[in-house]
Design a protein around this nucleic acid. Structure first.
Lengths: 343, 343
DNA sequence: GTGTATTGTGCAAGCGCTTGCATGGTAAGC
DNA sequence: GCTTACCATGCAAGCGCTTGCACAATACAC
């Protein structure tokens, strides 16, 4: 059907116009009369013409592509919210006519960032899981590669981010448990290097402090976000000296493990012991489907992905100058997993 | 530290060489003496120089990027083996220094394919879930865009593919059940439009035919690959007139649903009733972890992803001329979910 | 009828690289 | 000492597009 060698030159020749005019007509530049434009567009359509992305991006300096950098294992591990973030990003990228370059890395993330910057393959990148003091932010600023962070860091550098409202969510969950009379609460948190883990710990302590209370000295468990560690942590704490009356879990995966441990101990959630958690809305693992349904703060991690992509693209297109900062709201959903504390 | 405007011209100027020589030295072209090459490489390193990917790919005609085309919802649904395929692809793409462009589509896949081809954004693409008679194959051949298919189709066109050995796996699983005396076997298959579903049905029937037996007239259920449909299908069949003595499931997701249904009916798998399945090795859903452990043919869908990427890159680099066809082996793993048929 | 805007289009440079071919210099052959 | 070969490097075109500026033609004002 169409020649596959449809390039600007040929098209211009056929139309008896110059390349400039054709190029401008196709991009609806001002100064091109409507009749010409219509003619050109019709011819382009007929020829199945699309500008060569490489040439265009070389000429314009923009690739209309964004990169997502992540450790390869986030795709390999079963318990991850990464795919949901990816789904959100994909949606917006597609909607805004950008492309998404996946850049997994095995160990040296900085090298990947450097390559992406000097190679000019993308107009900007999304980075994830920031550390408390994350060096990537300074690096990206220095490389002048637009970026947005999924989460926050404590660095002084300016940067755009999209984050969950950890500061309030965990205070709220903790308060709820305190309202029900719980004092021996265990926070099953994430690994300490990440900033959100910090924020959640602080948020937890704030809730206690607000009522002049003190959490258990070993109230906070810094463990990974899996069912297995949730289980293991709960088992350990139940066997310990000061048996907790409530668990607050950082993820539904951990909560699953906690539920299993409690069940094994013959404890009924929502009667003998209480559990709450933060629910990112990961595909297929909803707090609502637990038995009994799990009280949780709920957000949409996929929504975060969408916002990340939208923010980055806005940044790239300079619709904005300074850092864009988004904190996504959450909703506390009461279900059946909380009971009054038993003495 | 480095100038971020490190381009070939500047580098060549600094070295007192021409762009051609520097370019050649960096790519270890023959004819460049080792001393020069070393000098150039050292200077490039010091300057943090990387060739601009856009310019290079415009000049060479190759982007060193492959595309993965898929319906957006495959990222949104919880029960999918897509992420595992993606993980495999990512691994190999990274290892071979290619980039991966994700191209989700909402409805018009052909349009995406056309755009990718004329836009020259990728050197080749991977397409998934071929239909029995899949039009994409002819389209891609016509567009002259290298591609490899995950799965097979029945079209006459030549094409490269990587596929699971459905033809033998399902015959094998069926034979196993027949060996145990089962006759009233239900195959919980996938949706009929896909070629692999066809292949599995045929494979199933072959096993019966090989012994001069006939399956139930309604032996094969063409349903989606989810826990919910597995459950629903099993419930329906258990309530029906000719209660099956065994279920053969196309995926672990379906098998999960079937297990649940059987449990609700008070049937003990591996004693009162038998179940086998095909296990793609999806992250976090292993047949080995079922209770009781589920007998299954096992393959690695992630391995398929790796092979897909490797095949496509080989194709692109013309290490081979004609279609590459891979059928991945499987292993039958006997566990505890099969018992002798009860009359 | 002259002068000035305005309009539609084209020229040519340039984005940053690769590569076929040419060139000058040195080594080898006899 | 002259030819032939080879070696190291450079020239310049070209990949397919965009875009600043120039230009001719027409429209408008007076």
């Amino acid at each position: 059907m169409h020649r596959s060698t449809a390039d600007l030159k040929t098209l211009a020749l056929e139309l008896g116009l110059s390349q400039s005019t054709v190029s401008r007509a196709l991009r609806a530049h001002p100064g091109i009369p409507e009749t010409t434009q219509r003619r050109v567009i019709a011819a382009a359509e007929a020829a199945g013409y699309r500008p060569n992305a490489r040439a265009r991006s070389l000429a314009t300096g923009r690739a209309e592509t964004i990169g997502l950098i992540f450790p390869l294992e986030r795709l390999q591990l079963p318990e991850t919210n990464f795919v949901d973030v990816l789904a959100g990003i994909s949606t917006v990228v597609t909607r805004r006519n950008y492309s998404l370059l996946l850049s997994p890395f095995a160990d040296d993330e900085a090298a990947v960032l450097r390559r992406l910057a000097s190679t000019k393959a993308v107009d900007g990148v999304i980075i994830t899981r920031p550390l408390v003091d994350d060096p990537r932010i300074a690096l990206l600023n220095q490389l002048r590669l637009p970026f947005v962070v999924h989460g926050r860091s404590e660095v002084a550098e300016p940067y755009s981010f999209v984050d969950t409202d950890n500061d309030n969510a965990f205070e709220r969950l903790t308060s709820l448990l305190l309202d029900y009379g719980h004092r021996r609460i265990v926070l099953v948190n994430g690994l300490a290097q990440f900033r959100y883990v910090d924020a959640r710990a602080a948020s937890f302590r704030r809730a206690f402090a607000a009522r002049g209370l003190t959490p258990l000295p070993d109230a906070i468990e810094f463990v990974s976000m899996t069912e297995a560690t949730g289980y293991e942590t709960a088992m350990r704490r139940l066997a310990g000296p000061e048996r907790p009356t409530a668990f607050l879990c950082g993820s539904v995966f951990q909560a699953r493990g906690v539920y299993r441990a409690l069940r094994e101990h013959g404890l009924e959630v929502g009667r003998d012991i209480s559990v709450v958690c933060h629910d990112d809305g990961v595909r297929g693992v909803s707090a609502a489907d637990f038995t009994p349904p799990l009280t949780a703060t709920s957000t949409s991690i996929r929504g975060a992905g969408e916002k990340l992509a939208a923010t980055l693209i806005d940044l790239i297109e300079r619709k904005v100058a300074e850092p864009l900062r988004t904190i996504l709201p959450f909703e506390l959903i009461l279900r059946d997993s909380v009971a009054l504390a038993r003495p």
